[in-house]
Computed example of a mutant assay.
Amino acid sequence: MGYDVIVVGLGGMGSAAARHLAGRGLRVLGCERFSPAHDRGSSHGGSRITRQAYFEDPAYVPLLQRSADLWDRTAAESGRELVRWTGGIWAGRPDGPTVGGSLASARRWGLEHEVLDAAALRRRFPALRPADGEVAVVESRAGALHPEHSVRAHLELAAAAGADLRFGVTVHGWTASASGVRVRTGAGVFEADRLVVAPGAWAGSLLGLPVRAERYVQFWFEPADPSTFDGHPVWIWEGAGGRQVYGFPTDVDGLVKVAFFRGGRPCEPEGVDRTVHPSEIDEVAGFAGRYVPGAVHRFVRAKTCLYECTPDHDFVLGHHPAQENVVLACGFSGHGFKFVPVVGEIVADLVQHGRTAHPIDLFDPTRPGLTARPGEHVA
C-alpha cells in the first residue's frame, strides 16, 4: 500500500494528527513504539488541566479556544468522556506570573473571569487556604482532560477513517528529499510523500533538536473530606519561590491528584527512574499542604511521566527547516496536552496545504535557539 503521509509517534499529538489527516482522505501510516495509550511518555495519568486564561502568553488563547470546541466535538464523535468543565482557579501573589499572566490573557481576549481576594476565596472554596494578600483568577472555561481516553478516541477515529496504525514499531531513523520520505523501523522501511514527526520525549534524538526530556511525578492522595473536593475546580497555586503546584477534584477513586508544574529532573527517556521516592512524596505533600491542606491527607499512589522541554518552553510546530515535506510537532514542554485536537488540525493543514490559518508563529522551528539537523536522522 502506498501512503500519502507517515506519522511517527501516536501519543497525544500524533494520534490527533493521524485522526485529522485520515479524516481528510489521506492515506496514513502511523508508527508507535509502544502500545496504544501507553504510560511511557507524556500522555497518561488520568487527567490534564485545560484552561484559557493562559499565564504563559496571551498568544496561545485563540488556539485554546479552538481546542476547547474540538474537545467537545471529539467527545461527541467518539462517545468517550474526554473533558470535565470544572472551572479553574489560578492563585498566588497578585504580582506573580501565575495571577498576573492569567489576568493579562483574560483581559486581552475578553475571557469570562473574576478575581477573588483571600477572604473571598476562602468563603467560596473552603478547601483552599490562601494567605492574606494572595488572590486568585477564577475562570469557567477550564477543567480536567482525560489523556488516555483522548489518545484512544483519536486512534479509533483515525482507524475508522482508514488509517493504518501499527504499534510495537520502533522508528530508527528517517530521510527526506523532494521525491518523498523513507522511515526505517524495526518492522522494515516505509515510504510516503510526507512525514509528521511527533515523538514526544524522543524528539532530541530523532530530530537533533534541543528538546530535553524531564522526569516528573504525579501523586494521588486520599483527601481528609472527599466531599470538599467533589466537583471542585482544577487549580494551580504559585507558592513560595514562584514554584507552582497543581491539582484536580476527586476522580472516580475518590482521590485528589497533585503535582509540581516545573522543576523536573533532566533524564534520558530510555532510562528514566520510574521509582517514586519517599522524599518526593513528602516534598509535594508539604508544599501543597500549605495551600490545600485537606487534599493531601493520605498518600495512595504515584506515577512518573515525561516532559519534552524546549529552551523557551514554547512548542515546535511547523515545517522542518530543511525539508518542506516534513512537519514537526514536539517540544510541548509540559503544557501541551490541552492543545492536542487543534495541533492535529494544524498538522493536517500543514501537510495538506503547506500552511494553516491558525496563529503558530510563536512555535517556528527556525526561531533562535532551535536547530534541527538536516539529512539522516537516527534515533
Rank of each mutant, 00 (worst) to 15 (best):
G2C: 12
D4M: 07
G14V: 05
R27S: 15
H38F: 09
H38D: 07
R40Y: 09
G45F: 02
R51L: 04
V61M: 01
L63K: 05
L64R: 03
W71R: 00
R80L: 13
L82H: 05
R84L: 07
G88L: 01
P94V: 14
G96W: 08
G100S: 15
G101E: 06
R108V: 14
L111Q: 12
L116Y: 11
L116A: 11
A119M: 13
A127C: 03
A127V: 08
V135Q: 11
G143Q: 02
G143D: 04
P147M: 02
S150Y: 12
S150K: 01
V151K: 01
E156T: 07
A158E: 13
G162E: 11
G162P: 12
A163D: 13
T170D: 10
T170E: 15
V171Q: 04
V171P: 10
R182T: 05
V183T: 14
T185H: 04
G186V: 02
E191S: 15
A192S: 15
A192K: 09
V196W: 09
P210S: 04
E214P: 00
D225P: 01
G231E: 11
W237N: 01
W237I: 08
G239T: 05
V245Y: 00
L255F: 03
G263A: 03
C267P: 01
G271N: 04
D273H: 00
E283S: 12
F287E: 07
A288M: 09
G289S: 05
Y307Q: 00
N325S: 09
L328G: 09
G331K: 05
K338Q: 08
G344H: 03
G354H: 01
G354K: 02
A357M: 02
F363Q: 09
G369R: 12
L370M: 12
